[in-house]
Simulated scan of single mutants.
Amino acid sequence: MFVILGALLALTFMMAFSSKASAHGYVEGPKSRALLCAEGTNKDCGAIVYEPQSLEGPGNFPSAGVADGKIASAGGAFPKLDEQSATRWAKVPMTSGANTFTWKLTAAHATDKWDYYITKEDWDPNSPLKRSDLELFCSIDDGGKRPGFSVSHNCVVPERTGYHVILAYWEVFDTANAFYNVIDANFDGGFVEPEEPGEPDPEEPGIDDIPVWSPSSVYLQGDRVSYNGAIYEAKWWTQNDKPGESQVWLLVEGEESGNNDNDNTNINAWDSSKVYLSGDQVQYNGIVYEAQWWTQGETPGDSSVWKIVN
């Protein structure tokens, strides 16, 4: 009886984790409250330090969505984030006017829209964050498009001075959920006039544009580093794990270290009972697939979690 009950509990946990892992993202610039928790700048944050990309809650905000007082935690899954006072959180320096907001997506998802809100000038920083504290200042309609793994939006932030909270809101297109990220900002009282958009830079970032791996830095899923002439991407949260020597790092460019794209002999066959993480590769029906996020039991070729590599 106890064995069966334990198995059912384990299965329930795994199903919940798999569902939660279907789409993830966080604001990396300006750094969100959750990201500063993961980096150790914010203290006493709870479990969000391991998964700042998981602030997912019901969508259709502000007419529906998460409850007042639980906006920062996306509904209460990470309750520490809802603690609110004038001094509780580290603040990023900002200037009103033209600003760029950048999301790091660890699992891209078809998108309805991106909205950005800021607290009103008379808001109370010592009370839990609520809808009536916020005003919308920027909205981008994606109409169901699937974004890349880095998304940037140029917005004009209203004039503010001192401490204010920005809510960055990502509404998913094909589910009822959305992602909520708050940014604690200290405004200097200035204003940056928006410029006319210039021609985009056609060049892809090269190895010189990617930071060199440091054993003292915290890396999150999707972060890229250069090490010994190669580029690696983190498959999950890591610190001190050396690229090329730990399975947390996925080689994306450079010397293959024995892993040739045309040589499939070292790639294991897909196993329906095995848990796979982002970057893991398998063989199935003569084709090599790579997992884009956490998965178990989803057949390569039948599920979007798997992409064809070779």
Score class of each variant (00 low, 15 high):
residue 192 V to M: 00
residue 251 L to N: 03
residue 224 R to G: 00
residue 231 I to N: 01
residue 165 V to Q: 13
residue 261 D to W: 09
residue 277 L to K: 13
residue 165 V to G: 09
residue 268 N to Q: 06
residue 263 D to Q: 06
residue 213 W to H: 02
residue 212 V to S: 10
residue 192 V to T: 08
residue 282 V to P: 00
residue 174 D to F: 14
residue 280 D to M: 04
residue 204 E to L: 12
residue 271 D to P: 04
residue 195 E to N: 12
residue 206 G to K: 01
residue 269 A to L: 00
residue 246 S to N: 07
residue 258 G to P: 02
residue 241 D to P: 03
residue 164 H to R: 14
residue 244 G to V: 01
residue 181 N to I: 11
residue 207 I to A: 01
residue 179 F to E: 09
residue 216 S to T: 13
residue 166 I to Q: 07
residue 235 K to E: 00
residue 246 S to M: 03
residue 205 P to I: 02
residue 222 G to D: 05
residue 177 N to R: 10
residue 198 G to A: 12
residue 219 Y to K: 04
residue 217 S to D: 13
residue 218 V to Y: 07
residue 185 A to Y: 14
residue 235 K to G: 03
residue 186 N to P: 10
residue 261 D to Q: 07
residue 279 G to K: 05
residue 231 I to K: 06
residue 282 V to F: 00
residue 244 G to W: 01
residue 222 G to I: 06
residue 252 V to G: 11
residue 244 G to P: 01
residue 237 W to F: 12
residue 202 P to W: 00
residue 210 I to F: 02
residue 172 V to L: 08
residue 256 E to W: 00
residue 215 P to I: 05
residue 240 N to I: 10
residue 237 W to T: 15
residue 181 N to V: 10
residue 165 V to P: 11
residue 160 R to G: 04
residue 174 D to G: 07
residue 179 F to A: 13
residue 185 A to F: 14
residue 202 P to E: 00
residue 166 I to K: 09
residue 174 D to A: 15
residue 232 Y to S: 01
residue 191 F to W: 12
residue 230 A to N: 12
residue 159 E to Y: 15
residue 170 W to P: 05
residue 191 F to T: 12
residue 273 S to H: 11
residue 184 D to V: 10
residue 206 G to M: 01
residue 172 V to G: 03
residue 194 P to L: 07
residue 183 I to C: 14
residue 189 G to P: 10
residue 174 D to T: 13
residue 247 Q to H: 09
residue 212 V to M: 12
residue 193 E to W: 15
residue 196 E to Q: 05
residue 169 Y to N: 05
residue 234 A to M: 00
residue 232 Y to M: 02
residue 228 N to M: 00
residue 227 Y to K: 05
residue 174 D to N: 14
residue 265 T to P: 03
residue 219 Y to Q: 04
residue 159 E to R: 15
residue 166 I to V: 12
residue 181 N to E: 11
residue 184 D to F: 11
residue 242 K to A: 04
residue 203 E to M: 02
residue 207 I to C: 00
residue 231 I to T: 07
residue 239 Q to I: 12
residue 249 W to Y: 07
residue 201 D to F: 00
residue 231 I to P: 03
residue 260 N to D: 04
residue 194 P to T: 08
residue 193 E to D: 15
residue 281 Q to L: 04
residue 227 Y to M: 03
residue 241 D to V: 05
residue 218 V to R: 07
residue 234 A to S: 05
residue 159 E to W: 14
residue 180 Y to A: 11
residue 266 N to K: 13
residue 217 S to P: 09
residue 175 T to M: 09
residue 191 F to I: 07
residue 282 V to R: 05
residue 211 P to Q: 01
residue 211 P to C: 01
residue 198 G to L: 13
residue 237 W to K: 15
residue 283 Q to P: 00
residue 219 Y to N: 02
residue 194 P to Q: 06
residue 268 N to Y: 04
residue 267 I to N: 04
residue 164 H to V: 13
residue 162 G to R: 15
residue 277 L to D: 05
residue 205 P to F: 03
residue 200 P to Y: 07
residue 216 S to D: 15
residue 185 A to N: 10
residue 236 W to K: 14
residue 280 D to S: 02
residue 280 D to L: 03
residue 266 N to Y: 12
residue 161 T to V: 11
residue 227 Y to D: 03
residue 249 W to L: 08
residue 189 G to R: 15
residue 241 D to W: 07
